[in-house]
Structure formats: structure tokens, C-alpha cells
Design a protein around this nucleic acid. Sequence first.
DNA 1: CGCGGCTTTGATGTTCATCAAGTAAAGTGG
DNA 2: CCACTTTACTTGATGAACATCAAAGCCGCG
Lengths: 234, 234
Amino acid sequence: MNMKAEVCPGTECLTCGFRSEVFASLPDYQLEELSRSKVLMHAKKGETIARQNDSIEGFIFLRDGLAKLCRTNAEGREQIVGIATPNDFVGLLSLFSSKTYNYSIVAIEDSSYCSVEYDMVMNLVGSNGEFARNLLAKISRVSDLLIGSRLDIDLLQLRGRVAYILCFFANEIYHSTRFNLPVSRREIAELIDMRVENVVRILSEFRRDRIILIEGTYIEILDKEKLSWAKMHG
Amino acid sequence: MNMKAEVCPGTECLTCGFRSEVFASLPDYQLEELSRSKVLMHAKKGETIARQNDSIEGFIFLRDGLAKLCRTNAEGREQIVGIATPNDFVGLLSLFSSKTYNYSIVAIEDSSYCSVEYDMVMNLVGSNGEFARNLLAKISRVSDLLIGSRLDIDLLQLRGRVAYILCFFANEIYHSTRFNLPVSRREIAELIDMRVENVVRILSEFRRDRIILIEGTYIEILDKEKLSWAKMHG
DNA sequence: CGCGGCTTTGATGTTCATCAAGTAAAGTGG
DNA sequence: CCACTTTACTTGATGAACATCAAAGCCGCG
């Protein structure tokens, strides 16, 4: 836990990736207000950005890197709820309805993020209708994706789930058939409701069948067809 | 599909259950605007209120009754995403981010609901900051519950899932240990990712163990302790 | 009456979690 | 730097949990 905090220059928000999405509607003067109230932070891979059950300090926007949303249940079992990419609100879900974070946010790649005061965003919601609508659209889209993918996964058997998550990283995150997995085997298991041993087993199967090339964290998808097929049929 | 439509009198919205929640902040004049633009409809048990992939006509608020949100995947398998209770936005999830309903809404008890023009609500979001904040809180809460319960269920084995859903109906819906199940065995299966046969089997087990009394759709929970235990450890 | 849908139980095989054991890799302290 | 510990990864063997198949009873409905 050795995160640098820095107040970013007033102009930086003007060029931030968020601007094009949620903050598109903010006039410059409101954006500068936002700039002054926000703090830019860094988190190295593995570092915790927010902790489940801690009281919500502010809104967290991921600028660069990758983070997992996860929770630990009463019996100590960990589940990964989703993966946040740059320009995502992370911890968006409970922000408007809870006083505490429902999920931990942990960097799975070196990341930088902005933390914005809760009240600041709430004031913007109240005073800028276009902003409110954009925010609703954003939260709606995020929730929808999260629920949809979980329903998808629930229908699949283990082979299908592993195929699903490989396609997810290839298509949604890295936009390439070759990438380094940002998560351990254990984390893959937590992400798609499996056991570590079975994740390993099925990855080995895929390698044996020349569907993927895998060496440590490096993944190369060799046969997209077969992988998609596995994603559909179990 | 034999639903009556009626324009409800201008004053009715003033006393609607929603008023106390999402619409608490609307002044009377905005509420009357809302009243004029809305249509009150009825749906008998089994009737479809909205259909997956149909284009979104408006916001749907459940006033009375009970409805299921469900979807059918490419292979024709049906899943129930959640159960909507009175004063719920139904189909809330995709409303702000999609042009079509992501889920079908089907009455599982005789229900009445209001349909409000999309633009009307969007205008209110823009012009009434307090309303926008309430709406954010509502959508946030609903999404959160939906995702949370699905994560819970994913951790449980079949006995635990059945216990979970029985407790859900008892505690969240009927506030009683005695009630009539509004859903078929098949629908229970679709709700908690099981097969019909196993739902039946486990219900029979619970009866054998004197945990519940069950006769057709009538359920009586006899041993809350054991049921809660099953919910945690099964 | 006969048909189809819902419910129920039993038998069977598949899928998956668990246990066990071993290797590799990575951090820790002297 | 090396011995040591810990953590991640990997494979096999086993039994438990579950899906599937089959068959029969039930009920409502045309």
C-alpha cells in the first residue's frame, strides 16, 4: 500500500478519457471545479484501491490499468464480480444506494485512478441534467453487462466458462489474440465460479487440442473457431 | 394478451406507492404532468407485460402484483433474472442504455402497472435534480440486489439454493411463513439455475425432514432454523 | 375421452469438487 | 548468496453432486 497522491493540474480533466463519456456535457467551469476537488492516485498490481465494507469516500474512476471488483463472503470464499477497464466507474454499483463499498477494488495491473468527492458529483447530478442522464446511462450499461455476463456464465459448463473468459480478455480487454493474463489461475476460478484445479485442467486441455498456446501468463489463441464453439456448447 | 388500459385520474399519482420513493421530490405540478402522460394497465397471471428485444416504449412501474424478469438465450434456455415487487421499476436495468428490453416482463400474479413515456421521465431527470438523485439511488439499489443475490446463489449447492428461494418468498415477498408459490417448479429451477427434477426432489427432501409443509403451490415453513442452516451450508 | 403440460420418483452416467502429491517459482531471513 | 518458506501451478485418483433419461400419476382443457 504505497500509493502516490497528486492533485492534477486544472486542465487535465479537459483531456481525460471520461470527458468523452460521462462528463461530455460538463461546461469548462464545472469541469474545472471537478478538477480542483479530485485526487489522482496510483496503485501497483495487487494493491487495494478500495476495501469492501469501508465507508465510501468518493467516486473512483479508473484512468489507466485494470482492476478487479471482488467480495469475500461470510465463509471467507472470494468471488470476483467483474473487471474494470479504463474509463470505468469502479464500485459504481453501490455508490448511490449504500454508505459502504460492497466490493473491494484491487488493481490487477499497475493503475491510476481519480477519486472525486461524493458531494461534488451529487451536486453535478442535481445541477446538470445532461450529466445526470449520462450518468444514468453509464450505470445502466455497466450493471447490465455485469448481470448479463453472469447469466451467460451460469449457463455454461466449465469448458465453456474458460473459453468465455479467454474470449473476454482477448476481445474486450486486449483486443488481440495474444496477451498476458493479468490474473492468476485462482482469480480466473473466482471470476467464473470454478476451482483452481479445473481451470488448470481445462487450460491444459485447450493446449493439448491446439486451441490455445499457453506458457505461464502468456496466452495466444490459436483456434478462435473452436474456442467460440466451446463458449457456446459447454 | 388481454390487457385493459385506462388513463388514471390526475390525482391518483399523488397517492401512488412510488410517490414515497422515487417521486418523493416531484412537486404537484410535475406529478400531474406525469399523471397525464401515463397509462395504467392490467396483466393477468401469465400475461406478458414486455417482451425481450422489443423496442422500449416507456418506463414500467409495477403497482400491484408480482412479475418475473426473464430472458431466453440463443439455445432457447430460459432464465429468470429476478422478481419484481410493487413499487419496483421493472426492466429498470437496460432502460437508460438500450433501445430494446433486455428481458421479458411476465406477470406471475395478477398485476397492474403504469407505463410512462420515456421522454417524460428523461425530462424530469434533467429538470429536477432531486428526482435524478432518487432515480440513481433506486437503480443502484436494484442492480446491487440483483447482482448480490446471484453471487450468493452461485456459491450454494442445490439444497442451499432451494432454501434461499423459499426464504426469499417468505421474507421479501409475502412476509409470512405461509404462502402460495407464485411460480411453477420449472420457474424455480430457472430462477436458481437448476433442473426441475432436482427442485422437486429437494422440496420433497425438505418435506420429509419436516422443514417445510408443501402441497401443490402451498408452502408452509415449519423449521426456519434448519432452512437458514441449509441456506448457508448447502 | 385423449392430449399436453406439470409434477414426482427412480435409475444411470457425467461433471465436477475434493484430496493428495509433486514441481516450479518467488519471496525471506541469515 | 544460499537455505528456507511460502505461494502458485500442475496432474492423477476418488467420490459426491448433479444432469439426464425414463416412466408414471395428476390435472385441466378442448
